[in-house]
């Protein structure tokens, strides 16, 4: 069975056209035209990737995203018609891994999905066990423990943590993180990194307002404090 993509989009013509284009790329596509239907479909059979349009009738894309996030770490791509507003940040904070702005080329979407799925299989770091104070990372098993308790990170968050942990104390620029985690080039959106770091902190830090591990280096990037 191929990789299944659940697309949530209320505009029937867009939905059909995108489905056709994605099927041409070799993906298996399941459609939903409302948030409710999407959640039912996901509960019935979880997809490998979820594509959510933010502007939906009924429960909106953010809510769909949050609902799915509560039960799954599946890669989620948000689709927005407005790239420069707070929609992007709100979508990322609702748990999306990446976003695209309409109109996008389906080939670009395919590339994004491939990047997300690729990084959903971690363990490229040769170390089997990393420990930072009360924080414990097992890259091969995709597990993070704080004081012995397992934390639920999405795959992107996990990948980000492992990347930072690969060289503790080294400063990673936004650009390099965008390239390594999202396969974006120099002009990728730095907000992806910023919001994911914020989300990561909410989970791994005891006091997210005064982070002890994931540190911002002003004007330069981020680092993991050993």
């Amino acid at each position: 069975m191929g990789t299944r993509i659940l697309t949530v989009e209320d505009d029937e013509r867009i939905r059909t056209a995108v489905k056709m284009a994605l099927e041409d790329e070799g993906w298996e596509v399941e459609e939903a035209d409302t948030g409710e239907e999407a959640l039912q479909a996901f509960t019935r059979q979880p997809a490998d990737v979820v594509l959510i349009d933010i502007m939906l009738p009924g429960i909106d894309g953010f809510d769909v995203c949050r609902s799915i996030r509560r039960v799954s770490d599946v890669p989620i791509v948000m689709v927005t018609a407005r790239a420069d507003t707070h929609d992007v940040v709100a979508g990322l904070e609702a748990g999306a891994d990446d976003y695209l702005t309409k109109p996008f080329a389906p080939k670009e979407l395919s590339a994004r999905i491939r990047a997300l799925l690729r990084r959903a299989r971690p363990a490229e770091v040769g170390v089997t066990h990393l420990r930072f104070g009360d924080l414990e990372i097992v890259p091969d098993e995709g597990v993070v423990l704080r004081a012995g308790v397992e934390l639920h990170l999405t795959k992107t968050e996990f990948r980000l943590l492992v990347e930072l942990a690969s060289a503790p104390g080294r400063i990673f620029s936004r650009e390099s993180l965008l390239e390594k985690i999202w396969s974006y080039g120099y002009f990728g959106d730095g907000r992806l990194v910023d919001v994911h770091v914020r989300r990561l902190r909410m989970k791994v830090e005891l006091d997210p307002a005064n982070p002890r591990h994931v540190i911002t280096v002003r004007g330069l990037g981020y680092k993991l404090q050993p």
């Binding site: 056209a17 995108v18 056709m20 018609a81 309409k102 109109p103 080329a105 389906p106």
Partner: peptide, 14 residues
Amino acid sequence: LRSPLMTIAATVEV
């Protein structure tokens, strides 16, 4: 404007 363009762009790609 973006919605119809989205359909057109995807259709052209198909």
